[in-house]
């Protein structure tokens, strides 16, 4: 092997370290999850994951996470754009605020959002007047997830946006491109891979979110129950195997979806 020596030496050492690290943190816990779920027979497993309540919660969890990720995909792009391309007073403050949803304990976020958006809360009462509910409905769940996953798209887009020099846009303008053409043919291709990463992160985070959602969801069986809550319900019956079955279901669905996003990204990268 006559590869040029890399900056950080010791391929064996670093790879070994990576593998140990990943095993301890990810592989072993997830492996244990799968092993525990094998205490169930295949029929039992299928019966648990195809129960109507589980399917309803599955749709809700993934649906709300998707909605939140899409919303953040749009608003987050806007935020990143504003923060990178414009200088205005208070920019630093907004910049710092973006990360707050990560720092705040999710339960605190959940309680605060619920108080605001409850049917007679300061904001929720307007929704009540218009005849719909925010807290204690799927809308509230999506709202909490949007809050919790806000930083992902913004933070993945910012460095990429900053790397696109303004000259590129100016050159395109000089060559006669209209603004929408610049957006479509110049900016979008450069941003899309990072955008997809941010989207996927927000989505994955949203699917597993528990702390903020249980306060705002209302947790009505079959209507506003999220999958992680069903896992807690099983655990409170000391049904460890049943809980792992739902865990495995979530893991498999998430893995497939993330894989699809990844493949999409690679196709885009290849052009």
């Amino acid at each position: 092997m006559s590869r040029p020596s890399p900056v950080i030496p010791g391929f064996g050492l670093t790879l070994g370290y990576t593998l140990v690290y990943l095993s301890l943190l990810v592989l072993i816990p997830l492996g244990a999850l799968f092993i525990k779920s094998t205490e169930l027979t295949w029929e039992q497993f299928v019966a648990i994951v195809s129960a109507p309540r589980v399917l309803a919660a599955l749709k809700l969890s993934f649906g709300a996470a998707l909605a939140a990720a899409l919303l953040n995909g749009v608003i987050g792009t806007l935020l990143a754009w504003v923060l990178v391309r414009y200088r205005f007073p208070g920019r630093k403050v907004i910049e710092a605020m973006i990360d707050l949803p990560f720092a705040l304990p999710t339960a605190v976020a959940g309680i605060a959002l619920t108080a605001l958006y409850a049917p007679n809360g300061p904001i929720g009462q307007f929704a009540t007047e218009l005849g719909f509910k925010i807290a204690y409905s799927p809308l509230g769940i999506a709202l909490a997830l949007t809050f919790v996953t806000l930083p992902f798209v913004v933070r993945t887009l910012q460095p990429v946006l900053a790397d696109i020099p303004r000259e590129v846009e100016e050159a395109a303008t000089c060559l006669g491109a209209r603004p929408w053409q610049i957006a479509r043919h110049v900016l979008l291709p450069a941003l899309l891979p990072a955008w997809l990463t941010g989207f996927a992160l927000a989505f994955a985070r949203g699917v597993g979110e528990y702390g903020s959602v249980i306060f705002i969801a209302g947790n009505m069986p079959g209507k506003t129950e999220i999958l992680p809550l069903l896992i807690m319900v099983k655990l409170d019956q000391y049904d460890y195997a049943g809980a792992t079955a739902i865990g495995v279901l979530m893991l498999v669905v998430s893995f497939v979806l993330l894989l699809v996003i990844n493949l999409l990204q690679r196709r885009i990268a290849r052009g």
């Binding site: 204690y136 249980i214 306060f215 209302g218 947790n219 009505m220 069986p221 809550l229």
Partner: peptide
């Protein structure tokens, strides 16, 4: 019951 919280404090 409009809301089923997970615990008594909730």
């Amino acid at each position: 019951v409009p809301v089923l919280d997970t615990g008594a404090r909730g």
